[in-house]
Design a protein around this nucleic acid. Structure first.
Length: 446
RNA sequence: GUGAUUGUAGCUCAGUUGGUUAGAGCGCUGGUUUGUGGUUCCAGAGGCCGCGGGUUCGAAUCCCGUCUUUCACCCCA
């Protein structure tokens, strides 16, 4: 059979894994520095924990796991006959693959609430799965790196999370714009335009502004049943790029004013430290996930065309779904695969991270091969990453291997070297070769 | 889910209006070189032309289906 992997999934070669780990390590270091603790959750969740959390669209993109055993005996024959896929699926699948890290985290918090010290700051770096059509920067299996806090309403946390974005992308060398908005501000706009009942319709329409332009948004708003005078008002508000003028619009919207207040509070904290990247208020930023209630974030790379490489926000009552009311959460997410693609495109990975093997030993014949193995052990004992070509093959072949592995040094051992105790050390970058005793080598390669 | 698009050697790709034995570069193996890679030259191995069906005397080439790739929409990291 011809080997293949499911669509939207990928294998990772050694160099790719090394690069990916570089991204993970950079992110993890910052998370740890800001006091976040690691957790992990299973790849599979009960389907009931996942469905209904991501909207109708999200439900369609959930991977379901078929029940084991004679599942057809317990299947819903009526639903099958009526071709009701959703209902039939329920009867043959009780588990699904995790769709993001936030919902499993909410579930975790509720299940472990007695052992958790609130406010609880956790980070999580694990793969998630979505049955989406793959395209640029979009896969069916990809890693997310999340940092969330539950159990505090303080806007200091929003500021801290924005700082985390700034610091991580600075460390990775990616130039980004961090966009911020507040769901309450969006609601205020709907309120001020007199279309509070069409809040969701309005936000999904204006979220597309950067893609379809103001004209497209106008059409979209009209299609979604918003009256022309309301559209005009919305347009006026969208043209505003600072917070102050919005206050006038929101005179009669309590929620809207609260949103402004939250953003101002955020800035009190965030502005105390200069940021490397740009943070900008974007009144058109909406974000689809229905559970956000306060500040929302999105990060875009400046120098490359790519969907957002990070997003997050405040959700006042996420754990409510699992029976724990009144606990607020706020978090950010990094899309590792997209960050990888951006860094690859902009050539931002440091040169030396792929070089892990320091030295390769090559031998000419059986006796020197055995001798070389003892040299190898001594190199490894002092912590030098070294390898011996497994058999005394032709020099050309062994050197070719060394070259392909991009080893900086090769130690050549034959009968001369064995007898004299002076080993030939070849520098693979310069091509120079000199003889050293073993003790000299140990200090030289350290 | 909607609309396009792709699939030929390990990799990147040629392959004429359907015509006999499907090619190239790189890589690989061996030699040139009995102790030296990233530079030469020579030789060789390697293909159910994505898969299944159909049209035809004849299909890599045309038609249908299916899977896959890439892209846009939807949505999203």
């Amino acid at each position: 059979m011809k080997p293949s992997i499911p669509k939207g999934t990928r294998d990772f070669s050694p160099s790719q894994v090394i690069k990916r780990n570089y991204i993970f390590d950079t992110i993890r270091q910052v998370f740890v520095k800001y006091g976040y603790q690691p957790i992990e959750t299973p790849a599979m969740e009960n389907l009931s924990s996942l469905t209904g959390k991501y909207g109708d669209e999200g439900d369609k993109l959930l991977f379901k796991v078929l029940n084991n055993g004679e599942y057809l005996n317990k299947s819903d024959a009526t639903a099958f006959a009526e071709k009701d896929s959703a209902k039939f699926t329920q009867s043959v699948s009780k588990r699904g693959l995790r769709y993001d890290l936030t919902v499993p985290f909410a579930r975790y918090v509720v299940m472990n609430q007695n052992d958790i010290n609130f406010p609880f700051k956790r980070y999580q770096i694990q793969p998630v799965w979505r049955a989406d059509r793959p395209q640029k920067g979009r896969y069916q299996e990809f890693y997310q790196c999340d940092a969330d806090v539950v159990g505090s309403d303080s806007l200091m946390l929003e500021a801290e999370l924005a700082q985390i974005y700034d610091e991580v992308f600075t460390n990775l060398g990616i130039n980004v714009t961090i966009k911020i908005n507040n769901r309450k501000v969006l609601f205020g706009m709907a309120d001020a335009a007199g279309v509070a009942d069409k809040f969701i319709n309005m936000t999904t329409a204006i979220d597309k502004l950067d893609k379809i332009g103001m004209e497209g948004v106008t059409k979209e708003l009209a299609n979604r049943g918003i009256e022309p005078f309301a559209i005009k008002k919305i347009q006026e508000m969208l043209s505003v790029t600072t917070l102050k003028p919005l206050k006038d619009f929101f005179k009669n919207s309590k929620t809207g004013l609260k949103g402004i207040e939250e953003l101002e509070e955020f800035h009190k904290y965030f502005d105390s430290k200069p940021a490397t990247n740009t943070l900008e208020f974007d009144s058109t930023l909406a974000r689809g996930l229905s559970y956000y209630t306060g500040c929302i974030f999105e990060v875009k790379a400046n120098d490359v065309v790519m969907g957002s490489i990070g997003g997050g926000g405040r959700y006042d009552d996420l754990t409510g779904n699992f029976g724990l009311k009144g606990v607020s959460g706020v978090g950010v997410s990094f899309g590792a695969a997209r960050i990888f693609d951006v860094m690859e495109e902009l050539n931002l990975f440091p040169e030396n991270i792929a070089v892990q093997l320091k030295c390769l030993l090559v031998a000419f014949d059986k006796p020197s091969h055995e001798y070389a193995f003892s040299v190898l052990n001594q190199l490894r004992t002092v912590g030098i990453s070294a390898e011996l070509y497994p058999e005394p093959a032709k020099m050309g072949k062994q050197m070719k291997y060394a070259n392909a592995r991009a080893v900086p040094f090769v130690i050549v051992i034959g009968s001369d070297e064995m007898n004299s105790g002076k080993l030939a050390l070849k520098n693979m970058t310069t091509g120079e070769q000199e003889k050293y005793t073993l003790t000299e080598l140990l200090t030289k390669l350290k």
